[in-house]
Amino acid sequence: MKRIFRQNEIYVFFIMIILMIVITGFNRYFFTLENFFDLLRGHSFEGILAIGFFMVLLSGGIDVSFTAVAVVGMYLGVMTVVKTGINNIWLAIAVAVFVGLILGAINAVFIGVFKIPTLITTLGTLTAYQGALMSYLQATHQTVISNPPQSVINFGKAVLFRIERPDGKILELSIFSLIFIGITIITWLILKYTTLGRSIKALGGNMEAARRAGINILGTQFFIYCYVGALAGIAGLMLGSYLRYVDPLYLVGNELTIIAAVVLGGASIMGGRGTIIGTVLGISVITIINTSLVLMKIPSYFQQAVIGGIIVISVSITAYRQKLRERQTRVLDVT
């Protein structure tokens, strides 16, 4: 029991429960299966982005370019389907993932080979990737794809199962939930049971120690950034087919929401610490706040301040508890 309370996730979990109770008090609609299924459908892509970002954070890096990768993957994926006329969602997915892998590999080259700090690299590639896509589109006089092909729309509408309630309401669980849960489990398995996962954690804990332990740092970094790129590609395509509208200006600029969610879930920004459960809880809390202020009849212009406030409070609590713990076991550490 004591061990449970020492973990950060339990606090995030409590925050989520309290939020749910409060919101349900304001509006009964919140605590319905329809709402949860809707939330899952509309925000699974954010969850996938958060899981990718979590993996980078765990390895001691920061990747802010994932939104640009997602947008480029989304646009090129849908455009390939439009241009080739092959109306198949698998082609779009393959292109989006491939683009993500390539862009992620470019990040990894700068980070692993040239040893440029991760934040700087991805800051540069964030502006460059989106700028490249936009200048290409402007040069060829293309804009948003407002009527994507049928296969893409169908992907957004695909459901796992459908329940017809006695009162005539139809419940549908989107295929997006399956993708999100699948990616969560795969990432968890990689981190928990493979040497690769251990290497990623070791990298975040202490790079020099990891090197001396004989871990292939360059290879691990290539895996991390390519994996994140591929996840971003999938997430981008999911967003495009959910909205049925492919806008290259969408998403970029919202990196901080995802970062906030991952950090809220207790992942250390210095790397090496954090759990995937925490990340899922973190993105859930942020999503609930983002979508439910309207349900609570709070004007939408309060949203930004509320999220900012919650981030400040949650990181304050974590930092303060850390400080207390250090005070209990204080030693003079002269390194």
Partner: peptide, 9 residues
């Protein structure tokens, strides 16, 4: 990051 959201908000 948090105060950015707070001040902006």
């Amino acid at each position: 990051l948090g105060t950015m959201g707070l001040f902006g908000g």
